[in-house]
Design a binder for these strands. Sequence first.
DNA 1: CACAGCTCCTGGCAGC
DNA 2: TGCTGCCAGGAGCTGT
Length: 272
Amino acid sequence: MPELPEVETIARALRGQVVGQAVRAAQVRWPRAVATPAPDEFVAALVGRRITAVGRRAKFLVLTLAPQGYLLIHLRMTGRLLYEAAGADPRPLDGHTHVSLYFQGGGALHYHDQRKFGRLYLVGDPDEVLRGLGLEPLEASPEQFAALLRARRRQIKPLLLDQHVLAGLGNIYTDESLWRAGVHPLRRADTLAAADVSRLYEAIRAVLTEAIANKGTTLRDYRAPNGETGENQWSLAVYGRAGEPCPRCGQAVQRVVVGSRGTHLCPQCQSL
DNA sequence: CACAGCTCCTGGCAGC
DNA sequence: TGCTGCCAGGAGCTGT
């Protein structure tokens, strides 16, 4: 599942592949993949536009179009973008390729999604979609982060996952960050000591920065636009490692359910 | 504001 | 081997 580091990795790769390319044709094979506008309008509006920038906000890819407009993409669980360079052997479409953009230069960008949770948005103002997102974890100051937690009575894990509060963390990096900071996922946010908050802030930054350097975590589905997997799965301490020894203390990693999400922790390092 | 439950999807897997 | 049925999980939504 693509979280902030995976989306950032995709954005960096796409930038070198599609910036400057103009859309010659587009095809929507599964209409609900396009959240807005209606699919025929989506196709008609895209044709002729040029991609001038590729960015990221939280887990959204943001493609800037000229002369106007933005294409926003949220990959949710299993969404992938696959870039086909001009002249490359066209990959056969496999029934999960729901949207394709064909460029004037001959290349193509395919949106592929097994579980069909991801969505594309073509809008005049990205804020129509992004409004309401919380802070970017890598841009927030320690004070801003502390202020987010201070007044909240919620459990820390569901709070960190709430995109309206902090935007970009998913299940994997939340578990990894809480482990690194030594904070139990059920701790109430407003009961964390200043030292806990500060360790958590630094842990989130370190976990995300390292995951970006490792080009993301591939547990099953995640791929970069050229089809390559990430490497960060080899660096995970607790996520998906129930029963294995904690890298810090050797205690068996536990799997529990928090807010209906599979949650991994070290009962020794993350006490309540 | 907090939170439980439902929905969307389908591959993967357990159980038989 | 093949079938049934459950589960994961991001995010929006409703209801309490």
